[in-house]
């Protein structure tokens, strides 16, 4: 099977004003993702996970520079025009962010925020866009989606907000979903529900999933393969099962050990 996403020698650096040397955030990152595959990106804080997610979306801040090659769905993303990248966003490649409260516009109703995705990609009929949004909200497990769609983000729970974000990302049936720490801001029980929803949606649509997390527990339940990032390098790219059994690198071992239950006290 040909790869849906192929990242080759991706380097991202940021120039700080007043500091002559740009700081490297990602160095020579390479990996591939087949259609429908689930891959976890594991790494400690500052390892470059979010930078990678933003680089794939083309949403890096302006003072960041990305070099290398990112092939996606027949396009070379890094050399694509801004307009062409924009038309891929949310349509072919979507992202769910970490913090569902701040990731939603506080002054816009949830339904309108979801419907806006359809409208940004050519749906001119506002009623149809809204109906599409409500339908997707109920498919992402929002109870009483019709009524919830008319609420503001601060009027619903954290889990419901994350479901709304997921509805936005899934509305146009993308080929790849990037989930950047989708559960870190949620309670443990809600975490489990959202992960379950992610898995179910991924299977149902046969879409590829890139799940970014610092928590191997989250990745282990969802992803067949795991890429470990450490200080901007890919230090491991193995089936998740193998990573759990025998991590090769000391840095990965530390991340694996972090989720093992501690030895019982003697």
């Amino acid at each position: 099977m040909t790869a849906l996403l192929q990242v080759e020698g991706l380097c991202v650096s940021v120039a700080h004003p007043g500091n002559s040397d740009p700081v490297s955030l990602l160095r020579d990152v390479r990996f591939a993702l087949s259609p429908g595959e689930t891959v976890g990106v594991l790494g400690a804080s500052g390892s470059g996970k979010t930078t990678l997610a933003l680089a794939l979306m083309g949403l890096l801040p302006r003072d960041f520079t990305a070099t290398g090659a990112v092939h996606f769905d027949g396009h070379e993303l890094l050399s694509l025009s801004e307009g062409a990248r924009r038309s891929l966003r949310a349509r072919r490649i979507s992202i769910v962010f970490q913090e569902p409260l701040t990731a939603l516009n506080p002054r816009q109703r949830i339904g309108a925020q979801v419907a806006e995705v359809a409208r940004a990609h050519g749906e001119r009929n506002a009623t149809r866009a809204h109906r599409l949004a409500v339908e997707m909200l109920s498919r992402t497990g929002l109870d009483d989606a019709d009524e919830r769609a008319h609420r503001f983000p601060h009027e619903v729970s954290g889990g419901e907000r994350q479901r709304a974000l997921l509805a936005m990302a899934l509305l146009l049936d993308p080929a790849l979903l990037i989930a950047d720490e989708p559960t870190s801001a949620l309670d443990v029980t809600v975490q489990a529900q959202v992960l379950q929803l992610l898995r179910a949606q991924q299977r149902e649509r046969g879409m590829a999933l890139l799940l970014v997390s610092h928590d191997l527990g989250v990745i282990a339940t969802t992803c067949a393969r795991t890429i470990v990032l450490h200080e901007g390098h890919v230090i491991e790219d193995t089936p998740t099962r193998q990573l759990l059994a025998a991590p090769e690198q000391p840095q990965s071992r530390a991340l694996v050990d972090a989720v093992r239950p501690p030895e019982p006290a003697p």
Binding site: R89, F97, T102, A103, N105, Q108, V117, A120
Partner: peptide
Amino acid sequence: EDFIRTARAKGLREWDVLVRHALPN
């Protein structure tokens, strides 16, 4: 703000991001 990033991730034009999301806030 994060929701500006979300708006961009939806594939909105920069002008719509400004007028529909930044300005009301």
